[in-house]
Design a protein around this nucleic acid. Sequence first.
DNA 1: CAAGAGGTGTCGGCTGTTGACAACGTACGC
DNA 2: GCGTACGTTGTCAACAGCCGACACCTCTTG
Lengths: 226, 226
Amino acid sequence: MPKIPQPSDEAVPRSVGRALDLLEIVIAEGETNLTTAAVTAGLTPTTALRHLRALETRGYVRRGTDGGYSAGPTVLRLAATARSEGPFARLVRLAQPVLDEMTDRTGESSYLAICDGDRAVYLATCESTRSIRHVGWVGKAVPLVGTAVGEALAGLPGARTRSGAVEPDITAVARAIPDGELIAGAVSIIGPAHRMDGAAVESAAAALQHGVDRLIDELGFERAAS
Amino acid sequence: MPKIPQPSDEAVPRSVGRALDLLEIVIAEGETNLTTAAVTAGLTPTTALRHLRALETRGYVRRGTDGGYSAGPTVLRLAATARSEGPFARLVRLAQPVLDEMTDRTGESSYLAICDGDRAVYLATCESTRSIRHVGWVGKAVPLVGTAVGEALAGLPGARTRSGAVEPDITAVARAIPDGELIAGAVSIIGPAHRMDGAAVESAAAALQHGVDRLIDELGFERAAS
DNA sequence: CAAGAGGTGTCGGCTGTTGACAACGTACGC
DNA sequence: GCGTACGTTGTCAACAGCCGACACCTCTTG
C-alpha cells in the first residue's frame, strides 16, 4: 500500500486548513484573484483576504500589480531544500539519469512519481525527443485508482500498463521502486497510444525493470520480497 | 528594490503562522523529532504535535517509523506545479540553458536566485566540472545584505562581486535579471577565491552580462532604464 | 448616473485554540 | 527490579483570536 499514512482530517486546525487550502488553490490555478480563490475555498472574501495576506507575508504567494495572486518564492525554496536535504533528496537526484536512460532506450517520455495522499504526483521527467511526445506532467497529480502509476505505487508487482486512464490517447507503463516492504516511488514511461503497441510496451517494461533495478542498487534499498 | 512586498507580520493568523513555522523548521532540518521542533518553534509539545499532525494530514510533512518528521510530498508537488505553471515557470526553464552556457564559458558553477523576503534563494544551478568546484547551494538562502547576489537582487547595476561574504574562501559575481523597473531574479557565478582573480572575475562578469541579455530577450522582459 | 464586480476595513460574538496537567512507553543507570 | 529522565500523547476549561455580517471604496461598463 502507499507509504503515506492518513491521519484523520478532523485533526487539522481550522485556520491552518483554510490557509493551506488557499495556498493550494493559488498554486494549482497558476494565478487567481481574491474573489475566485475565496469562492473556491468556500470562504468569505474577508477571511480569504486575511489568509492570503498571511501567505503573502510569509512568501508563499505573491500579489501582482493587477491584484492577482500567484506562487511565491517560499514554496520553491522549501522544495529545493527538501530535494537537496530531505528524504526525497537522493531519490530525485539518482532518478534523473535513470529517466534519461529509459527515454533514450525507448524513445518515449519517462517520469518519476511519488505518492501524495490518494494521488500520484509526477516530480521529474525526461522527455522524448520525438516530434510527437508526451509532455507537461511534472507537478501533475493523477488518481492512484485506475492508473498505471497508481497501481505501481499501490505495490502491485511487475509492469503495470494502462491506456486511456488519464487522457484518451495515452498509454502508460509503470513500475514501483520498492524499499523493502514499502514503496518509495514509481517510474513510468508514457507515450501516444498509437505508438505503444505490444512490442513497445514490452520494451518499456524491460527498460523500467532495468531502471528500477539500477535505482534500487544506487539507493541502497532492500529488494522487495516477491 | 526586491520584488517582494512586505505586508506586516502581525497580519498572520497565529495558528497559521505556527503551522508554517513548523513546516519550515522540519524542512530546514531535513529530519527532526517532535520535541526539538516544538522547542525551535517556541511551542509546547502538545501544540506542536497538533500542528505537525495537521501538516502530516495534508502531506506537507511525514513521520517515519522512528517518530521523526521530514518533508512530505505535497511541498514537492506544489513546487513542481509552481515551476511548471506559475510565475517562475518560464524563468527557471529558460534560465537552465543560460546557466549551462555560463558554466561552460567560465569553468565555474553558476546559479539562479530569486528574492524571498530578506533573503536570496538559489533555485537552480549548473555545476562546474572541475574537481574543485562550488556545490550544494540549491535551496540555500543567503542574506540580501552583504552578498553579491543580494546586491544584484537589490537592483544595484552591473556585476556585483563579493569574496568571503557567506563562506571565507568563495568569490561570487552576480548580476540582476531586470524586468522593467523590477528585478525578476539574479544569476551568479561562484567559485573558489583562489581561482577567481581579476581576469576570472572579468570573464564571469562578461558571461553574466551575456547570459542576462539572452534571458531578458527570451523572457520578453523590458530592459531596465539605466 | 446606476449597477455590478472586486477589494478592503470594522467590530463584537463565540468557539476554536491553547497549554497546564496527567498519563504512557521506553531507555538507562544503580 | 526500581527510579529517573525523556519523548510522546490525550484531556479539558479558559480566553482571546478568528470570523463574517456589514459597510464602504474604487473601477468599469452600459
